[in-house]
């Protein structure tokens, strides 16, 4: 996110002409970057898939343990813990995205 608004720079460049210049630069770089970068949907999909894999792995571990295939209890618990951690992480990211969306929707035009 190098092209996000830099709070320190925006504070220091109080000169309006410089500011405008900077905004134009940012916009130009965004247009250029847009073609090469993988789209947001793909990134989100991949991330969700990896979380789903963790969840499935935890369920598989529970099944295996119930069937007597796993002798280590901690393996089951740790896998479940990993799944829970990645889900928490996903929820945090989701909350951030929803917050950002709401913020934009609330914008007065």
């Amino acid at each position: 996110m190098s092209n996000g608004i830099d709070p320190i720079n925006s504070l220091t460049s109080l000169d309006p002409i410089k500011r405008l210049e900077r905004i134009q630069n940012t916009q130009a770089s965004q247009v250029k970057k847009g073609e090469a970068e993988p789209d947001f949907q793909k990134i989100l999909n991949d991330a969700l898939k990896s979380v789903n894999v963790q969840q499935k792995d935890a369920i598989q571990a529970e099944d295996d343990f119930a069937a007597g295939k796993i002798s280590n209890i901690h393996d089951v618990i740790i896998r479940a813990e990993k799944a829970a951690m990645s889900l928490t992480m996903t929820m945090e990211v989701r909350n951030k995205i929803v917050d950002a969306y709401k913020e934009i929707m609330r914008m007065q035009l």
């Binding site: 002798s71 280590n72 901690h74 740790i78 813990e81 990993k82």
Partner: peptide, 18 residues
Amino acid sequence: DIFGTMNISASGMTAQRM
């Protein structure tokens, strides 16, 4: 990554189980 760290601890637990 954070899961790698957990895997190290898991290996220690497995070793202690043995």
